[in-house]
């Protein structure tokens, strides 16, 4: 997988133009370590979206989130999706944490950029699966976004048999392990129906990664 350096610097909240060779060379070493630790796995299912906005079903999931419903508007289908970089990244994070916080920040940023890249790669494959039916994908919508409760993780990952298919488990507080994992519901509907991706639709105004347009 290719590391998106611009994303890495964004996650480190670091202005790439202002860093020196010392940091660049440490980052290069960290990237090698992360790539060696990554064991990506993903799994998805294409399911039907049925019902109206107060109570609707996405495959086996009964949901009430209005934010997600708006995202799924006019979508006859949706993908249930999970992906992870694997437990090796967590092992590397633990090891790095006891040796160098600077490296830790870099491992974290590189891994965060990589899981996004991996999800994007998976989306390309999912998009190809529905292209023949004239459908395109909507945004990746994860439990915890907007009014979709974090607790939706549980039925979502159970439906995916995520432990067996991708090695993802949940803590009692619905956090995914390995930590560099993503779960989501992704609408598939008519071409042209997708709304543009935008931070403006999100209510988290103090998000440190918010992009103003």
């Amino acid at each position: 997988m290719k590391i998106d350096r611009a994303e890495v610097f964004r996650y480190m909240r670091t202005d790439r133009a202002k860093v020196d060779a010392v940091l660049e060379s440490r980052l290069a070493a960290v990237e090698t370590q992360v790539l060696a630790a990554v064991r990506p796995a993903a799994y998805w299912q294409l399911v039907k979206v049925e019902g109206c906005d107060s109570a609707y079903r996405v495959g086996p999931l009964e949901l009430a989130s209005r934010n997600l419903y708006r995202e799924l508007a006019s979508c006859p289908h949706a993908f249930l999706f999970c992906a992870t970089l694997g437990a090796g990244v967590d092992a590397l994070l633990r090891q790095t944490a006891c040796m160098s916080a600077a490296d830790l920040v870099m491992v974290q940023a590189v891994a965060a950029a990589l899981i996004e890249t991996y999800c994007d790669e998976c989306e390309t494959r999912m998009a190809a699966e529905v292209a023949a039916a004239g459908e395109t994908l909507r945004m990746r919508f994860s439990p915890g976004y907007g009014d979709l409760p974090l607790a939706t993780q549980k039925p979502l990952l159970v439906a995916l048999d995520a432990q067996r298919r991708a090695g993802i488990t949940l803590s009692e507080t619905f956090l995914m392990m390995p930590s560099k994992s993503v779960s989501a519901i992704i609408g598939a509907g008519p071409v042209g129906g997708a709304r543009p991706r935008s931070c403006q639709r999100c209510g988290k105004l103090d998000c440190e990664f918010r992009i103003e347009e």
């Binding site: 670091t14 202002k18 940091l23 600077a102 870099m106």
Partner: peptide, 9 residues
């Protein structure tokens, strides 16, 4: 003027 990784290093 200094970023987190630089501060830590």
């Amino acid at each position: 003027k200094v970023f987190l990784p630089q501060l830590l290093m």
